[in-house]
């Protein structure tokens, strides 16, 4: 528990540092919207992954998607 608290603190520090580094480049309102629509889900995901490390991800969704095609290719 203590370890994950440290991890959350480090990730938050890194995220704040990123925001400070990029802040002057964000002049355009559209760029700002796009930046935050990448930044906020990313940050949330980082915190979620620290708390629940076994969260199902894109790989688990991708496997069943391509499995029929792979089977077809390897049978013939």
């Amino acid at each position: 528990m203590n370890l994950s608290k440290t991890h959350i603190a480090v990730v938050t520090l890194v995220a704040i540092g990123m925001l400070l580094f990029d802040w002057r480049g964000l002049t355009d309102i559209r760029t700002k919207i796009a930046y935050f629509s990448l930044y906020i889900p990313g940050f949330t995901l980082a915190i979620l992954l620290i708390i629940y490390p076994n969260l199902p991800g894109p790989v688990q969704w991708m496997r069943p998607l391509f499995a029929p095609l792979a089977k077809l290719l390897f049978k013939s």
Partner: peptide, 29 residues
Amino acid sequence: PLVLPISMIMVLLSYWSVSNVEFVFSPEF
């Protein structure tokens, strides 16, 4: 401005529900 958020997402995707990278060489992938 998009470089750093994308790299953050890359770091996360490299850990998100991946126990090892052997599956990259599976036929599905």
